[in-house]
Design a protein around this nucleic acid. Structure first.
Lengths: 249, 249
DNA sequence: ACCGTCTTTCTCATACTGAGTATTTCTGTG
DNA sequence: CACAGAAATACTCAGTATGAGAAAGACGGT
């Protein structure tokens, strides 16, 4: 550091500024019963005690933002490390409108978006009364705490776009999956039916999206059909060419 | 607000938390002399006094994040309102690694990305000694203050991607432009030559990207060629289908 | 045993893409 | 003032991707 900086530091008075806080909030999405679900917690502490909110909390003094998001993800989902490795977790957007938090402290929140595979039952954390996977349809009828409804909407929108250009859909399924399980992810997130034949051809033609395991499911679908081949993720993160949603054409 | 919240508020002590600050920093890109340039300022105050940095500053107490970014953009570029309307300005990413700011205050910065059209000479603001458009090539040899090199890299990467799916390239050119001026934007940002014929066909085929004005340039190119037709932006913000960069195919 | 479902593969018409070429209009130079 | 070089626009053609439909099997439930 320069000498001028050192001199300036001595006269610096942090508490002269109005108090500010920074939190991370998580939009954690998963698929249950062919519907998109989000993890919500019932707040056990004020503000908004008793109301439903996205999981999140203050960033600790020595913690970087991705660390804080990963910690909250661990605390709120109870996922094991092996599963956590496969979870997509990326920064979504930061919200800081004055008054979005009623406390006498200006709170900015850095929202993160996560996609979880299987469905461990959620764990109520220290400051949460209760935690639950809520279907997106259900959330539209509830009033979420803070500006979390807007954050959730932003997260869902981002998820829909991410599916087109990234291999993110594999984060929603198990380590080994069938092509129709993968297709189901797209159908649920986009909310529209896809042509099974064309989807199959497309996925197989994108280099590095999936690779064959050589095995098949133990039995066919519940209502019939042959055993499906099992694939695993092929290592590609970007899809070339992209898997565009039909409705946007 | 619930009663429980009100009770809780009385016991709340903001200054018990370590001090935190939030700034906005801007990656403002433009094209000069067929090269991508970024607006940098020479810091007039510690920390990093005398070093080059992205323009930015603290978010004011009653200001939302987009307002703070717009204010900084106005202050630093001196653009007039009519020009500002056409500037693309959107949130990029938030950075908050402990220690990224040497002050005894944890500073998070919300980075914004802006694309400016013509090239007004920059204006030195209150806490800036000097301001200048720097070519990207030049910035690679300089050490920027804070973690601004990483923020800049993130902004450039985002810009390259945005060109593919949005009509953003029109923010870099004047209100009326020729197809080859538009092509030049893509070539400069992507750093590769495009096929003039194919680019022309593609731009004309994307619905709502450009619309004819019926006029042409006053004279041909400096080294010959016919007068080019003038177009204006056609109103579309998303491009369907996208204009993919050739190198990624 | 049979019906309906599901996976996987084909076919075919249409659309889009990259590469190359042609035509015409202009600028700058001798 | 003719000419070379350059640029704007249009056209061609082969290769590839896409949407829609259909077919061939494999399997579960009844």
């Amino acid at each position: 550091m320069k000498e001028a900086d050192a001199e300036w530091l001595e006269n610096y008075e942090p508490h002269a500024y109005p108090p500010v806080g920074v939190t991370v909030d998580l939009v954690i999405l998963t698929i249950r019963d062919k519907e998109l679900h989000v993890l919500l917690i019932e707040r056990g502490e004020p503000p908004f005690k008793g109301e439903w909110a996205l999981p999140g909390g203050f960033v600790l003094p020595d913690e970087d933002l991705p660390e804080a998001a990963a910690r909250e993800l661990r605390e709120e989902t109870g996922l094991k490390q092996t599963d956590l490795d496969r979870v997509y977790l990326d920064q979504l957007k930061t919200f800081g409108k004055p008054g979005r938090d009623p406390r006498p402290l200006r709170v900015f929140t850095v929202a993160y978006l996560a996609f979880a595979p299987q469905v461990p039952e959620p764990v109520a954390g220290t400051d949460a009364k209760n935690a639950a996977w809520m279907s997106l349809a259900a959330t539209r009828d509830m009033k979420l705490a803070f500006d979390h409804a807007a954050i959730l909407a932003e997260g869902v929108e981002r998820a829909r776009n991410k599916l087109e250009y990234s291999s993110l859909a594999t984060s929603f399924v198990g380590r080994e999956f069938t092509i129709s399980e993968l297709r189901n992810v797209y159908e649920v997130v986009w909310g529209e039916q896809l042509h099974p034949g064309n989807f199959h051809r497309k996925v197989m033609s994108v280099d590095g999206y999936v690779e064959e395991t050589g095995r098949t499911t133990e039995r066919g679908g519940e209502r019939g059909g042959p055993r499906a081949r099992l694939y695993r993720w092929g290592g590609a993160t970007q899809l070339h060419p992209a898997l565009l949603r039909p409705s946007e054409t």
